[in-house]
Design a protein around this nucleic acid. Sequence first.
DNA 1: TCCTATTTCTAAATCGATATAGCCTCTACT
DNA 2: AGTAGAGGCTATATCGATTTAGAAATAGGA
Lengths: 329, 329
Amino acid sequence: MSPVKPTLKTIAEISGLAVPTVSRALNDAPDIGARTKILVRKIADELGYVPNRAGVRLRTGRTNVISLVLSTEHDMMNHTARLISAIAGEMQGTSFHMNITPYFPSDDPMKPIRYIVETRSADAVIMNQILPEDPRVAYLRERNFPFVTHGRTRWADSHPYFDFDNTAFGRIGVEKLVMRGRRNIVMISPPRNQNYAQNMIDGGTGAARAAGCSMRVMQGTTSDNRNEDIQLGVARHLAEFPETDGIVCSATAVAMAAVATLESLQHRLGEDVDVIAKEAVPFLTLFRPQMLTVHEDVARAGQFLAQAAIQAVRHPEKPPLQGLDVPTG
Amino acid sequence: MSPVKPTLKTIAEISGLAVPTVSRALNDAPDIGARTKILVRKIADELGYVPNRAGVRLRTGRTNVISLVLSTEHDMMNHTARLISAIAGEMQGTSFHMNITPYFPSDDPMKPIRYIVETRSADAVIMNQILPEDPRVAYLRERNFPFVTHGRTRWADSHPYFDFDNTAFGRIGVEKLVMRGRRNIVMISPPRNQNYAQNMIDGGTGAARAAGCSMRVMQGTTSDNRNEDIQLGVARHLAEFPETDGIVCSATAVAMAAVATLESLQHRLGEDVDVIAKEAVPFLTLFRPQMLTVHEDVARAGQFLAQAAIQAVRHPEKPPLQGLDVPTG
DNA sequence: TCCTATTTCTAAATCGATATAGCCTCTACT
DNA sequence: AGTAGAGGCTATATCGATTTAGAAATAGGA
């Protein structure tokens, strides 16, 4: 590699061609001769030419960046880091970079989205924490700005997304508990306005009905709650329904808090009560006493989200990529 | 906000000034009149003017990006996500963006660094997993490229860093175990070529000597190892030294594996053996049976790293920011 | 009054890439 | 032979910001 970064100009001088010709040759434009294209490509490769991002961006408006917009306090466990790593892995070798725009739960979720769109600081956004009628999705669709959601909206048919099948999770969770003889089940669920909460509840309710047992819902608890609050909620529920012998949890942190509560109340996990949780990270099985788990494939989610985002940018005319992680148990 | 993004040209037209004048006024250049500066700033504020990053970058070479270079598989727990969130929080309101460049442990750690420097895709890099004579640090220093390390090198005097005081951690870990009556301690340590491993060992060794008890070192185990491998190592150590009654762990994942091993060997945690771990994330205390913990302030690390990176970019002449997280117990 | 400084601003060039328009040079057809 | 059309390039302008050089206007000094 030469000491100075090669530009189109460098290649133009070496080849004796004009700068725009070199540009068009590298971009495989139809009005450039085959011989010229080969020559230019060869010189470019030898020099290790890489287009200057600022130049491309200034001229075309394309940033070659995909922004991952994350609520920071969400999901205390490693979920987020895994997702990031999977997305990044998928973007290796593409011309895209990843850019993370975290925002605080106290902030308006629209703020980072507006910023990205207005300053055009990315070609696409990937979002999590999706509401059924998410205003961010509405905003982006109106403006025809490429995006992918991790989770489904009401309008999911028409936009790219990847989702964990929470209906299946709810069903499997209850089924597993039933198979261990549990009959008085409670599902600790996030607020119902979150789409996945309703899905979990639907799945669990169906399975409980099929098994002829009861399933209560303890509403509004997520991993964003403080640990003490979750514990308090669980304790209160157990006081009211002491016959409870199975708990389905939406998030790992919630499950851990539930287990801690059970322990402090002298319940024996695996004996007179069971807890079931999503396992997005392998360490959960190390937890003692052990809870039951349903596997969530976060790595696949990350890969899919990245692919879907890239396709949304490059081929907006194609049908949106949509994927579902259906847990098997 | 007007429908079109305002540029310097927009302001120039409104004010009747030339574009460079507007630019210099906004940048507080000495050769612009005070009255003009006030006028220009006022118009800019009214329009909600924000400099176009591509324009600035193309012209000046400054990217306004700080790249966080992370080994992806490192630290299975939430550490990484917290760090990201803290860094991002600290950069809110500055002109800097954060950009994450993950790399896989199998890759050459130099690769992402070279890429960033050669393509000038960031103004500074923040790195973790620091070796005593880290080649990345050598490379960046040679080229005068701004960077901050999370962890110290041999040359730490002369560059910005933030570090967790692993010597103190090793000392406190052993002291806590000794206070609980443990006399046969093992420290599970990462490979000695990692700086922090040696520090942990030094701290622990000193404390053990002071307490007049033994401390062995079980070398080369990190959270990058597979869970089964860690468990195997611990089991082997316990077979060789059955009198072991205290374990100091370098990482959370290691501690959890150690606890699992002890359990499978019928040891009772808190009774005939204790495990002590760094607690970078609050959930560790929920783990049962409970281990002892030493708090690591990851949020502070992230804030500090961001500040140090920004200062390295903006004021390279100032002495580098250096910080230490000294755990207290 | 004339000339030199100083202050304050403008003109032009530049960073790297690409879009648009247009210019040659052949070929092909009437 | 004359001309239209295609193929293959080049010239020029442009994205938005900043740097450099220089110009106009004002002030100060002899």
